[in-house]
Design a protein around this nucleic acid. Sequence first.
DNA 1: CTTTTTGCACTGACTGGTCAGTTCAAGAGG
DNA 2: CCTCTTGAACTGACCAGTCAGTGCAAAAAG
Lengths: 229, 229
Amino acid sequence: MSRHTAGGTIASMDSSNTRREATRRKLFEAAVTLIAEQGFSSTTVDEIAERAGVAKGTVYYNFASKNVLFEELLRHGVEMLAASLQNAADEVAERGGSRVDALDAMIHAGLYFISQYPALTQLYVAELWRTNRTWNSTLMMVRERAVSVVADVIRDAVAGGELSEEIDIPLTASALFGMVLVAALDWQSFQPDRSIDDVHAALSRLLQGRVSGRQHAGGAGAEAGAGPS
Amino acid sequence: MSRHTAGGTIASMDSSNTRREATRRKLFEAAVTLIAEQGFSSTTVDEIAERAGVAKGTVYYNFASKNVLFEELLRHGVEMLAASLQNAADEVAERGGSRVDALDAMIHAGLYFISQYPALTQLYVAELWRTNRTWNSTLMMVRERAVSVVADVIRDAVAGGELSEEIDIPLTASALFGMVLVAALDWQSFQPDRSIDDVHAALSRLLQGRVSGRQHAGGAGAEAGAGPS
DNA sequence: CTTTTTGCACTGACTGGTCAGTTCAAGAGG
DNA sequence: CCTCTTGAACTGACCAGTCAGTGCAAAAAG
């Protein structure tokens, strides 16, 4: 009788683990939608289980508590976002584009991400500035993870002389982040028919400074009608 | 058993109920902080009453339900914000400033408002894009009320030739709104020591287009007390 | 090959606690 | 005396977390 052996049974790694992973994924999906719609506290574990098509006990088999489920969800989500932004910046860099072009590409990537995972985004916005919650430190980490990707590119741009040294890097990064976040949520909520390129162009224009004074288009990004790169 | 007829009795409408108004104000204040910290669902009516220093029965004497208390809170708050933004824009107009100057002043007013009522702001952000809530229509109204003040000024600026006709008015208004919102929350949460003028200058700079390309400052706003950084 | 054992993954009824909302008799205050 | 507030007790719904038990596939035993 080899009972439960210490060290988490190697055999179970491939066969059983797959089933479990699938269940966890279903639970993530169910939870993200419900929590985005209703908020954390008014979403019940029963609802999550029902939407995921599993029994309530399964939730507790896979996650220590409702809180833990939520925290893991946050972590998982922000990794996807950060990877997506980083990837957009890297692709531009590989093609020899400027840092400002990279920023523009990140805006596009951010918009795309939000359009793909609107519920996740709503959830971040709703929880990000709350205090007195148990998962507060997780939230801090999550925010830092996302904003720092943007801040890094801005920093490089300043170092390379592309951007003015006067700008406040962390504040600008978070303002940029917020601009995309809120514009995207509004786009999804109130004008869902518009194309991503359309929205992207509007935001680029805002940043090109064409809003507060008429210069003609500079180099970066704002080709307004076309080119879904 | 002549019960209380809990609900908005007509008599209470007009008579200058100083006492009652004071109680309601205390309840608003208590509720806004608690809900911003913990969210609506996990804030209990007992907590609100305790923080306000009144009995639970008083809450229900003054508001039909927890939901109604919250809705009235939202309405009251947005009126203050809209008035504050409108006022900033009007003052600039009276002094003969441009519409772009007015926008800049509104950014400043927005920052100031958020620094005065951080809890209220957190609460809006947390609830604004949620769906499936009973007070959803209230929230829509609230958002519209705030964003339209900004949109109106932008529209005037476009009509007067100050801004390009290419810009997308509603989207730009909400992007601007979001930029200020998120930047301000970050300021309050992570760099509370910075002065409002400092933050304001950073945002103005972002909009002057100095971020994405080096033009020298246009006309509007970025005078600010010389940002260190 | 067949039977038995093992243990992972899952189930769902149940429990103990929490909380919105009610009720009311007894004041406070103006 | 009329409006407003108090405080405490009560109800009934709702919900996070528990636990004894089921199903099943693969390994071990025969």
